[in-house]
């Protein structure tokens, strides 16, 4: 006997899926915002003068990139309270995803940094900009423009990774879909709709970033 698709029960809970999508986006935006700060600091430290700084960055990237995100999320969620740091599940997930995205963004920014022409940096120094001014007004903007395309990929990846938050019962899209699944037994329909929402959201993020890319002057 064939399976007849019936979406009625899904549409009835569509608002829950949408609120789940919003939560997922919110988690990703918060995590990426913090992760971008980590990534920028780490990338500059990784090409900086301090040997200790470079070592810390190497360890950070190595550890995080060799950990599955799910494990990192569970570790932060369960281990930090034992260390006396009380976070709610949202804070703990954002923290974990920020750490995780920070490591990947470090690599993205580092690649962008190494593509900044050495002569341009020297020109900045030659007119008398200090090292910090050179980083802020010359190196960073060029690096960001270089990194923009791969930055987009990372952002989309982080949004998709927000589905992992379901593992600690954050009511984002995947969590809601699973719940509707259990309530209605419309397994295929639920996951079709959830997939459609993920695809639509990622597509929207991608085109937004492409618009941003076009607004910057080509070098």
């Amino acid at each position: 006997m064939g399976y007849t698709l019936q979406f009625g029960a899904i549409w009835a809970s569509f608002d829950k899926l949408m609120s789940g999508l919003a939560i997922g986006l919110g988690l990703a935006i918060a995590a990426v915002a913090i992760g971008t700060c980590f990534g920028l600091l780490a990338a500059f430290a990784s090409v900086g003068l301090s040997r200790i700084g470079r070592m810390i960055v190497t360890c950070y990237v190595m550890v995080i990139r060799n950990l599955p995100l799910l494990v990192l999320v569970l570790l932060v969620y369960f281990a930090l309270p034992q260390a006396g740091i009380r976070l709610d599940k949202y804070e703990s997930f954002i923290g974990a995803l920020a750490l995780y995205s920070g490591a990947y963004l470090t690599e993205v920014f580092r690649a962008g940094l190494t593509a900044v022409p050495k002569g341009v940096v020297e020109a900045a120094r030659a007119i008398g900009l200090t090292r910090i001014q050179t980083n802020v007004f010359v190196t960073a903007p060029i690096m960001l423009r270089n990194a923009l395309p791969s930055l987009g990929n990372t952002f989309i990846g982080m949004f998709k990774d927000s589905s992992i938050a379901a593992a600690i019962a954050i009511p984002e899209l995947t969590f809601q879909a699973r719940k509707i699944n259990v309530d209605t037994f419309r397994v295929v329909e639920t996951w079709i709709v959830a997939s459609g929402l993920y695809i639509a959201a990622c597509f929207a993020i991608a085109s937004l970033l492409r618009r941003l890319e076009r607004r910057f002057p080509k070098f």
């Binding site: 341009v120 020109a123 423009r145 002057p217 070098f219």
Partner: peptide, 9 residues
């Protein structure tokens, strides 16, 4: 400089 080295941004 020989290679101009203007700030491209």
């Amino acid at each position: 400089f020989q290679s101009f080295n203007l700030f491209p941004h």
